[in-house]
Nucleic acid binder design. Structure first.
Lengths: 146, 146
DNA sequence: TTTGTTGTAACTATTATTATTACAATTAAA
DNA sequence: TTTAATTGTAATAATAATAGTTACAACAAA
């Protein structure tokens, strides 16, 4: 299955927080921008807060980045919103048959290779930061004339 | 969500077909080795057959590789079992708000980066073949004494 | 005190995964 | 020709995750 839209949602949310300065960025505002629901936004904000990426203001509302955008990588965000169980990208079929020579050894042979693929993906996620997104989207917005 | 166990199942199935020579590899045999169900095995075999990775013998039963194992990459297998919709690893949240400057531009900025991550993962999948698995598992089996 | 907000629980609808039963079509062997 | 084993596929179900929604207590500023 695809990686949950929680990830792109989280990036969208962080982008709003990083870029928008003239409005208070509330969960209602974010729900409107992302075309989702304030509760979903608040859940994701909670996850981002739990790993120290944002701070959220209770009562009065709004949120801001807890770190400079160049220190927030896509990997941080991906891990925060828990798109995969136990951090494992691949779901291995359960309990292959130990009585079969293949079933007995398939984990020995496959586990490393799956990890290798996952690491390649995570390395790429780690190489992209919110600073990249902030820079590019600011350029887009400026071209469109404020 | 994690990538469906159809992928590891398919690799397990192909490994059995590649390695086991003294028994007819039927869907019942494969269901026992993988600890799943003959129908699930047959569905996956059907998908592998559709993209020309295996040939399946109707009536009498059994299956064999349609290509040498070094020409069957993990990427071929991954694509065959359709673990993600439309071939896209990431599920983008639907219809971000065009009236918001971030909602209007988030696709422009994110799409390329998501594709970059996906390509890194697929490049790694493409670098691993069934020949690697066959070689390593044969070694494991030999060490264990036939 | 009022207002707007966050955090969270509870619930729903939809969808994908995985498993299962059932059976027609196929093939080889008895 | 019949029997037995097998594939291909439809239909169904259980489980779990996703994504959405309503409701409301706790909170903080005006």
């Amino acid at each position: 299955m695809q990686i949950s839209s929680r990830f792109t949602l989280a990036v969208h949310i962080l982008t709003c927080i990083a870029v928008i300065k003239d409005t208070k960025v509330t969960s209602n505002f974010l729900a409107s921008s992302t075309n989702t629901n304030p509760v979903i936004v608040r859940k994701i904000l909670g996850q981002l807060k739990n790993v120290g990426l944002v701070e959220v203001v209770r009562g009065t509302g709004g949120a801001f980045l807890a770190k400079p955008p160049e220190e927030i990588s896509f990997l941080d965000i991906y891990k925060a919103v828990e798109c995969v169980e136990r951090g494992e990208l691949f779901h291995f079929h359960e309990n292959p048959n130990e009585k079969c020579p293949i079933g007995r050894n398939i984990h020995n042979v496959l586990d490393d290779k799956l990890e290798q693929v996952q690491r390649a993906m995570e390395r790429e996620l780690a190489s992209i930061s919110m600073a990249d997104v902030q820079g590019e989207i600011t350029k887009c917005i400026n071209i469109q004339g404020k």
